[in-house]
Design a binder for these strands. Sequence first.
DNA 1: CGATTCTTTGAAAACAGTCAATCTGTGTGG
DNA 2: CCACACAGATTGACTGTTTTCAAAGAATCG
Lengths: 189, 189
Amino acid sequence: MFEILKKRMEEIMCISVEDMQGLKDIHQTKKVRKGQILLSEGQVCTLTYYIVKGCLRVYRIDQNGEEHVLKFGIENWWINDGESFSTKEPSKSYIQALEDSDLILFEESHFSRLIPSAPSLQKFVEEKTTRSFIASTERIYEQMSLSAETRYNNFIKKYPNIFNRVPLHMIASYLGVSKKTLSRIRSKV
Amino acid sequence: MFEILKKRMEEIMCISVEDMQGLKDIHQTKKVRKGQILLSEGQVCTLTYYIVKGCLRVYRIDQNGEEHVLKFGIENWWINDGESFSTKEPSKSYIQALEDSDLILFEESHFSRLIPSAPSLQKFVEEKTTRSFIASTERIYEQMSLSAETRYNNFIKKYPNIFNRVPLHMIASYLGVSKKTLSRIRSKV
DNA sequence: CGATTCTTTGAAAACAGTCAATCTGTGTGG
DNA sequence: CCACACAGATTGACTGTTTTCAAAGAATCG
């Protein structure tokens, strides 16, 4: 499985042979079944996942027991709870497999020991963080400036491979509307 | 003015003498008047601002001509358009002074030349990026899980010094509601 | 003081949410 | 292979909230 990760990373950025070997040395693999919870609220997120195959989501449960989907992930995406992972505080989120999935995983402790001596990986991580931050800002802006209908249509265009694999009520949650509203939007085509 | 920045940075993190000197060597200062625009849509954001005194906002204008406030900044905050600053693409945002303000500014080119040779600064910037990302995630979650009223009350608690200096219609915009709705929330105390 | 900007308000209309019931499709076990 | 259970999606009636638009009151500033 690591070969897949390697290939995809090298499509994006030059990684030195040594750095890639270092990464390979600390990687682990895991297969999970649909529905399985990989991280629960209250646990510290000590792992970061690379999705070789499958689909995951990150979500939270509010005071009223409502679920809110913060993020989906599919093939070639990295998933963790960034907050807990970097602060080492207990997570407020859950991570769950939405399909049977093949994952590569890295322990935070191994990872942060490797990075300082692996400049090309460091650069990779930095860029990923920057891109995540830009994407968050974009999502905030879309939420405040676009109608639910436009957000839905953008979502389909941007993530067709998530759209056709994930229950609609989770997409509604991700978009910040009730499933009723999403249903209305969909029916008015 | 640089002394203020220095003192505040050292409260948060150890910065080596050389790194701090390097930062001092590239800093510039600027005074701006209330209302002044520091960055416009379409320009590349080549500067990052540290606010010594005053208040700024980052906002965008959508297809309908509506303004949406992405961020406020007051004393001791750093402000730029992160997306344009890191990608060097034209910005989608405006940065505006909401009060007469004293700023310290850094050119991206100077900054990125300094950073690789200034490890304590690099660490500072990394932490700042991580914190920004966490804050964005938190804002997304609050937007999807909390009522406008709760978001408003949280805002007052979290940023009292922004709340009492900034027009309400901008706070409404930041919170993602109309000024009418904010007015209603406020009147029902 | 006059001009500008900001805030509140009213009435109507558009929109989104709740709840409960129904419909659909999938998959599992007998 | 069928029946049943189950998760997901839609629907209807109702309720409640938010926006829109315009106007009027405050507050601020030169």
